[in-house]
Amino acid sequence: MQNRASPQRKHTISVMVDNRPGVLARVSGLFARRGFNINSLVVSATQDPEISRMTIVSMGDDAHLMQVVKQLNKLINVITIFDHTEDDLVERELALIKVRATVDNRSEIMQLASVFSASIASISPSEETMIVEATGDENKIDAFLATLVKFEVLEFVRTGKIALVRGAKST
């Protein structure tokens, strides 16, 4: 009878919006007001200067996702929404990780980095730090961060997810 509960999972949607001031506030405000969570949100330019793309990851069941999409669609500045739940995606996040790098462990860090196809963005030998730059999907970044824990991770920053659908289908 009622909306049947489906499992909670992370949903990725691409929201194409008018590239105008205030649109981000409308979108994020809607999430806050309706009690929808945002796991990550990335705003980016697109090939059309009048359109921006928001890649949003939100956790919830399928009914939740349906409400998110429908409520977003009611915003006049939202042009189209792509729900990627069933899509074959290329997904990427970027992370910058600052680790303590002494003369002794520096090469080990570099070796680990190459296993994860990460690169060294900066080395400050005098202060014994190093910034490693990694890209990949969420799991890969999580795994990389986990392996770096045995060195001293001083701080890190990671972007939200961006994604495109494989093949000719446009998103």
């Binding site: 009878m1 429908k70 009611k74």
Partner: peptide
């Protein structure tokens, strides 16, 4: 007329 109302409270 508002798609967001369909299935919102009652299937």
């Amino acid at each position: 007329v508002d798609p967001a109302e369909i299935h919102k409270n009652r299937h």
